[in-house]
Design a protein around this nucleic acid. Structure first.
Lengths: 224, 224
DNA sequence: GCATAATTCGTCCTTTTGGACGATTGGAAA
DNA sequence: TTTCCAATCGTCCAAAAGGACGAATTATGC
């Protein structure tokens, strides 16, 4: 960790509920330092620390318990999106604000999908940045109106996808039942008298609908 | 299928409860034919058919619903033991009598462990064979007194092994808990801070103790 | 009749899992 | 003290599973 402002309350900046504690994860040194300085110097904001990689952040952020993590969407090795996914899995209470240099809808969507609360363009001015952090802490979702519109549109898709969750088709339901008895794909194909390929196609559809990535997860989901 | 006696009742040999229907799975042509003839000609026995491979037997035996399958322990490709395991999994009501040329304790134990009811030495005489088949149909377990003694001894081991089922070690229990949440080996290794190798070693031990062969089966077992 | 979904089968490729081993360390029991 | 077991890590190999596709046929709803 390059820059730790402090771990104990500082005179005139008590760690009470009015303080917003922030972590910055950004590999570019200039941007990282200017963000840390901006946050550290602002009234009622504290920068608990900064990290340059997703891996380091994942390891140390949970112990620091920040209100908000400002995360570069584009980090070396593990991306900020993957980092956000893992962080939110373990600590859903921590708000994540994505940092991106340009209006990359695809990656912003992906980030929001894995749990980010909003995003900031790197060219944003100081007041916007602090306001966005505050919004995230208070449960808001700062984003541009263009992106907000796209997000609303994507929610329709998501809602549709979720409706399909409940409606596994007949064959898919049969296969899920076999899965949950512990049978292998080969055993299922034999019992249902269909090819292995077909079993696997059904499985892929089941995984998509249930939002899982393995038979183990599907079994768990099936058995509540 | 080489030899199908009949699928419909034959005059003087009605398929009532007093009839014992048998399937023979044996790759040696001479032995297969002589067994089929012996069974077919005996009063109150019917040979529903014979197969030369485990694979063929697995496919067609369920449709024939025999009382007893006489299974060579030593078949080409898939062994009679593996065939018995699969057959008993799907159709526990079908009795299986293993055929072996010599008193191979290890393999006979294995066969009994996977669900065979008893065994026959190939040198057995006709009356012994028919009596053994009848015993199996009636829920008995025909075996030589020497083997019976060993089986009793092995039950002590098995009882010990089963006691160990309940006593998964601490780490094994932790891993099983993670399994049953749908985590992959990699995720488990990260969450428990141990290497992938160690997770897999624990898993192998868990599978041995629970008598399962996949994580899906282990999850099902864990969740009753 | 046309769009949509379900069902079926396939290929190519990568990752994961499982089986069969060996080996080390540390602690507990005989 | 010796022996056993739990826990740890590893290698080599084979089988299973999964992802990303395409594609054909048969319903089914609008």
């Amino acid at each position: 960790m390059e820059h730790v402002v402090d771990f104990l309350p500082v005179v005139g900046k008590h760690a009470d509920t009015s303080m917003t504690s922030v972590i910055v994860v950004e590999d570019d040194r200039l941007l990282r330092q200017s963000l840390a300085r901006l946050i550290g110097e602002a009234r009622s904001y504290r920068c608990l620390g900064t990290f340059t990689t997703a891996e380091e952040a994942l390891e140390k952020v949970p112990g620091l318990r920040p209100d908000v993590v400002v995360m570069d969407i584009n980090l070396p090795k593990m991306s900020g999106i993957d980092c956000t996914r893992q962080l939110k899995l373990a600590h859903p209470e921590i708000g994540v604000l994505m940092l991106t240099v340009y209006d990359d809808s695809e990656r912003i969507f992906e980030a929001l999908r894995v749990g980010a609360s909003g995003y900031l363009l790197k060219r944003s001015v100081a007041t916007e940045i602090l306001q966005a952090i505050q919004d995230v802490k208070e449960g808001g979702a700062p984003m541009s109106s263009q992106v907000a519109r796209k997000v609303v549109a994507s929610f329709r898709v998501a809602a549709k996808a979720d409706a399909e969750n409940a409606t596994l088709s007949e064959r898919e339901t049969e296969i899920l039942a076999h899965l949950s008895k512990g049978y292998s794909n080969k055993e299922i194909s034999e019992r249902m008298c269909i090819s292995l390929s077909t079993v696997r196609t059904h499985l892929r559809h089941i995984y998509e609908k249930l939002h899982v990535r393995s038979r183990a997860e599907a079994i768990v989901r099936f058995r509540h």
